[in-house]
Computed example of a mutant assay.
Amino acid sequence: MVDMHLDPAVLSSLQEVMESEYPKLLETFLDDSEKRVEALRTARDDAKALGRIAHSFKGSSGNLGAVRLAQLCQRLEAESAGATADLGALVDQIDQEFAFVRPLYESERQRFQL
């Protein structure tokens, strides 16, 4: 697994495209991600729900350059289909990764706040 937490090229590209709306995009991602992490915690014993949440979280994380978070979500989505393993440890890893990248996104948002 890649050790990259945030892809600076993705953030730079988003900043160019979104211009003054870039901080709002980051804020929306953070708010949405907080809800998804909470939903993962709540559904930790429901493999089907975990797969659905992980699928959408994987997409938003990848689109915003959260490389490792997207990879963990992809892994959870794949493993939830088999539902033979305890998925709680993977939910915890996603929770921890979001806790790691959240302040990085908050700092990025503050850099571009008008």
Score class of each variant (00 low, 15 high):
Q113D: 10
S107H: 06
V101N: 00
G65V: 02
F29D: 02
G59E: 06
V10N: 01
H5L: 15
R102M: 11
K35A: 12
V37A: 07
E108C: 08
F57Y: 11
R111L: 15
A9W: 06
S20L: 12
H5A: 13
K24P: 01
N63G: 11
G51H: 09
M1W: 04
A89T: 04
S56V: 07
L104T: 00
A49I: 11
L69R: 03
Q15G: 10
S13K: 15
L14M: 13
R44F: 11
D95S: 09
E19Y: 11
E16P: 03
T28L: 15
N63C: 06
E106R: 15
A49F: 12
L64V: 13
L76S: 06
D45F: 14
D95I: 09
E16M: 14
R41N: 00
V10T: 04
R36V: 03
M18C: 11
S33M: 12
K24F: 12
I53D: 01
D46M: 13
R102N: 02
Q110Y: 01
G51Q: 09
A43T: 04
E16F: 13
M18L: 15
C73Y: 04
A70D: 00
V2C: 11
F29H: 04
R111P: 04
L69A: 05
A47F: 10
E108L: 13
M1Q: 04
T28A: 13
G65D: 02
V37H: 06
R75L: 13
L64G: 01
D7W: 01
V91N: 05
T84W: 03
A81V: 10
G59W: 11
L11Q: 08
G88R: 08
K24N: 12
A39N: 10
